[in-house]
Simulated scan of single mutants.
Amino acid sequence: MKPHATATWLDDQEMQALAAEYRLTWEPSTDRTFSMPFTDLLDPSKSLNYLQGVSSIFETDSETATVSLFAKRYAYLILASGLYAMSRFNKGLNYEIANGTIESSYQGEAWLPKARLTNWQTTSPEADQRGVWRDQVIEQMFAGNLAKVWQSLSKATRVSRSVLWENTAIYVYWLYENKFAEGATPEEKQRVEEDFHYLIRDAPAHLFGESRNPLKQFNTPKRATAVSDTPIRVRKTCCFYYLAADDPEDYCPTCPKLKH
C-alpha cells in the first residue's frame, strides 16, 4: 500500500504562529489547579471536580452553563491550532486524546486555556494522498478526542451533545470564514476553502465519531434578522451563556431564544 503521509515537524516560525494566535504552548502552566491531561475529562469524578472548580472562573452556579462554557474553550484549543496547521501548513498535529494536556492560562481576567502536546511529531501528505491524510488528521481531532469528551461530559452532566457539538461547529465556521485565510498565499487560500467545504459538507460521519456530520448538521444559511442587520447563523441550540451573565436577559446574538 502506498504511504499517504511522511513524518515531519513544525518549524520555529510555524510554532510561533500557533502559539501567538491559536492557543498552542510547549510550556507547562504554573497554574496546575486548572491544568490537566485531556484524558482526565473521560473520568467522571475527575471531570466533575474540575468543572466545579472552573465554575468559579465563570462565576456561575449552573452546571449546565459551566459545561457549555468550558466546552467552548476546550473545542477552540483543540481545533484552532489543529485545523490551522492542517489547512495552512499542510501538517497534521496529533490531537488524539492521550496526546495532550490542558494548560491553564489567562489574558487579563479572561481564562483562555491552551493545549500542550506530548508527542510533537507531525505528518505531511504524500503526493496525491492528501485526502486520505486529511481524513486521518480530522479523525484524530474529532472522533479521537472531542467526540469522546462530549460523550463523557454529556453522560456525567446530562448536557445535550447537540449543544456541545454546536459549540464546536460555531468555532469551525468562524475560524475558516474569518481567520485562516489572513495573510495566506493563493495556494494556501485554496486549501483553506477546500478543507472548509469538506468539513461542513462532505466529511463522513465516522470522522466525527457520530452517526452524522455535526458540522454539516448545524450549518444553517446566514440571514439578517430582527436583532442583526449583518447576516448570521441562528443557532439551533442555546449555549446557556445567559445563565452565567450579569444580566439574565444577556443572550448571544445568535441565540435561538431571541426573537429573530
Rank of each mutant, 00 (worst) to 15 (best):
A5M: 12
A7E: 15
E14C: 03
A20C: 01
Y22V: 00
E27H: 14
M36K: 11
P37N: 12
F38K: 00
F38N: 05
T39F: 05
D40H: 11
D40N: 12
P44A: 00
S47R: 07
L48S: 02
N49R: 00
L51D: 07
S62R: 08
A65E: 11
T66W: 11
K72T: 07
F89M: 05
K91W: 07
G92N: 07
Y95I: 02
A98L: 04
N99I: 06
N99E: 14
Q107M: 14
L112G: 04
P113D: 02
A115F: 11
R116Y: 03
Q121D: 10
P125D: 13
E126C: 09
A127F: 10
V132P: 05
W133E: 13
R134L: 15
M141R: 15
A147P: 13
A147K: 12
V149W: 10
S154N: 09
R158H: 06
R158E: 04
R161N: 08
V163G: 09
L164C: 02
W165E: 06
E177N: 03
E194K: 13
E194M: 11
D195K: 08
F196K: 01
H197N: 11
R201Q: 13
F208L: 09
S211Q: 13
N213S: 09
P214Y: 10
Q217H: 13
N219W: 14
T225Y: 10
A226R: 15
D229A: 15
T230P: 07
P231E: 08
P231V: 09
P231I: 06
Y241C: 05
P248R: 08
D250R: 06
P253E: 09
P256N: 05
K257F: 10
L258V: 01
K259V: 02
